[in-house]
Nucleic acid binder design. Structure first.
Lengths: 345, 345
DNA sequence: AACAGTTTTGCACACGATTTCAATCTAGGG
DNA sequence: CCCTAGATTGAAATCGTGTGCAAAACTGTT
């Protein structure tokens, strides 16, 4: 049985479909391409036969000639984080709706791994790449990946890290000022005077920008500068460092956390270990508005990054860039706003 | 400039590296294949030139000739769920360490979407597929994917759904009896007599198996059969349905939840809305042991599915199957155990 | 220096699709 | 019935890589 049509290979090919339907292989290709010109009845026949043979075009082969892999690489430092997984969920859903599959990579905190990982990823020829990892710098991304145009997530309220933002990149600008102003105003309105900022990983651009803006807004309102509590976005660290701050350092009126999970850690430290009440004794505000923030045990007042808005903006950037690879750089803007729940007033 | 070597294409190819290094293209291929025979000095030269040219072998082209895509498809119903994202994180890390990239897909609850999604995924030729989605049945998987051998996750304590487990599949057997026995014993020891089982999505095999086993163990200990509270693994539903049970139905001593997130919803309903104390008035046990379960506000006693153990078992199945595609079906077994925290005694 | 045995090399083909281009078919008006 | 514009068709080239096979180069032994 050397006849390729009868050889029982593991996967049906266009050739087999063509043989079975008595058409040319080219016709099979056309039947699966909506824009190709082929007689409708012929297409229907081919599609029917294809289904019977359980045939699907091979993306690898297709990708070689079209130059489109229909893959979008996503790089995340910790998939299991609530915010990260919720964003990954939204992006995967949106990408899937546009016919892309998500190629997922996880970074270690180890910076040196970056190049290896990016080089490896590049082998898959992703049509686009989204790096949520704070340790993957867009300049590195641009250097290693030659086809994709990275999306730079910027915080134009402040000029943190702007040196990296060459005009070459597409940008997603996040306006954090509004949400932060509302949060500080609310806490001050309920009597808070002595603030702490519970930071995230210190190499995180998002954290740096948030801290910058929080300090600025607090200063503008004539309040003393906030005390800095070093965290890393994780619950356990936030819990421990909050404890340290109140036991060894100076207690505060209000805690502004760089993310919601950190806020949970702070709240639990205050309530469980220090016997303080939230919000009566200490007010707490978080950042992100993850699903868990409305859980009744926390019921956290937090600055919301609108996930749907953010996802749509990213999709617009990706799709426009794919449609016109040589167009000048694009920018989308999303904003933040305070979601008021029970941890302030 | 029609010379392909000088044409400034977006991506370096093996040809360009060969031209630049004055070697044959085959040599380049061998330089990147650890098992190929090539003079060491030559390999070093090629790798150096390749790095300068920022060259990486094209996985699509490689996949066509080797038949290995180095992709593993993962199908998840909701990436943002804590358990799902934690398992996805662990699997992605493990796969990456073995040289595989994760190809992520998300299902809707809509069952009809399955075939379309699977057919689409098949186009990428994944070397293996892991479907965590309860609505993707292994028989469907086996029919649509022709190369991969699905892994069937079974619960041999009970015979729920066994009709689907053809001997054709590789299996991961989860022994739930031990953890459940410990949990029921602990709650009974602290005086619980009237149980409720807070179920997950009813089409979930895991839930059916857990409920079966919980009922059996409770019966064996001479306790009245548990009341059923219908949930769907989500916080909000658990919260609402627990409220309904206590307000409109019959109160209970103890709640055994089908997953941790559901347990959180139940706890918050009891404490916040019903004014009951956990564990003094009602004991609560969950299932999974996600990161959030040790957060102090919940401090949940729960039946642990060991993620590391589970991930390693899955990796063994995948790797052995890939090494020997025709070997008879394999089985790995993992067990469960109770993690005692503060919601029982 | 000749020989056998091993390592290294490169040609040519295969993998499974898309796309160009010239040839063929179809429809409709004169 | 003929002619032309437009719609379909299929042969051949192409994408970037791995591999079988025969030839060449190298190794060390007598």
């Amino acid at each position: 049985m050397s006849d390729p049509a009868t050889r029982n290979r593991s996967r049906a090919t266009a050739d087999m479909v063509a043989r079975t339907a008595n058409v040319s292989r080219v016709a099979v290709s056309r039947a699966f391409n909506p824009h190709a010109s082929i007689k409708p009845e012929k297409r229907d026949l081919i599609l029917k036969v294809a289904q019977e043979l359980n045939y699907t075009p091979d993306m690898a082969a297709r990708s070689m000639v079209t130059g489109r892999s229909h893959l979008v690489g996503i790089i995340v430092p910790d998939v299991s984080g609530p915010w990260e997984s919720q964003e990954l969920d939204a992006m995967t859903t949106a990408l899937q709706a546009e016919g892309f599959a998500t190629l997922l990579f996880r970074t270690r905190d180890d910076l040196s791994l970056d190049e290896t990982l990016l080089t490896y990823m590049k082998g898959f020829n992703p049509d686009s790449v989204i790096a949520y990892a704070e340790n993957v710098r867009p300049t590195t991304l641009a250097r290693v990946l030659d086809r994709a145009v990275p999306i730079y997530i910027g915080y134009p309220d402040e000029d943190v890290g702007e040196e990296e933002a060459a005009p070459l990149f597409d940008r997603l600008d996040v306006l954090q000022r509004e949400g932060i102003e509302q949060a500080v105003a609310l806490m001050q309105g309920y009597g808070a005077r002595r603030f702490a900022f519970l930071a995230g990983k210190s190499n995180s651009l998002a954290t740096q920008s948030r801290e910058h803006m929080v300090r600025k807004v607090i200063a503008e309102r004539g309040l003393p500068p906030p005390i800095r509590i070093q965290g890393d976005y994780m619950y356990d660290t936030a819990y421990r460092e909050t404890l340290n701050q109140f036991r060894l350092g100076e207690p505060v009126d209000a805690i502004f956390a760089a993310n919601d999970v950190g806020a949970f850690g702070a709240i639990d430290a205050l309530r469980t270990e220090l016997g303080l009440r939230v919000p009566q004794d200490v007010k707490v505000v978080g950042f992100d508005d993850i699903h868990q923030s409305h859980w009744k045990s926390y019921n956290l007042t937090t600055v919301k990054l609108d996930l749907a808005e953010r996802t749509q903006a990213l999709m617009r950037l990706i799709l426009r860039r794919l449609k016109n690879p040589t167009s000048p750089s694009l920018t989308e803007t999303v904003s933040t706003r305070l979601v008021v729940r029970g941890t302030v007033g």
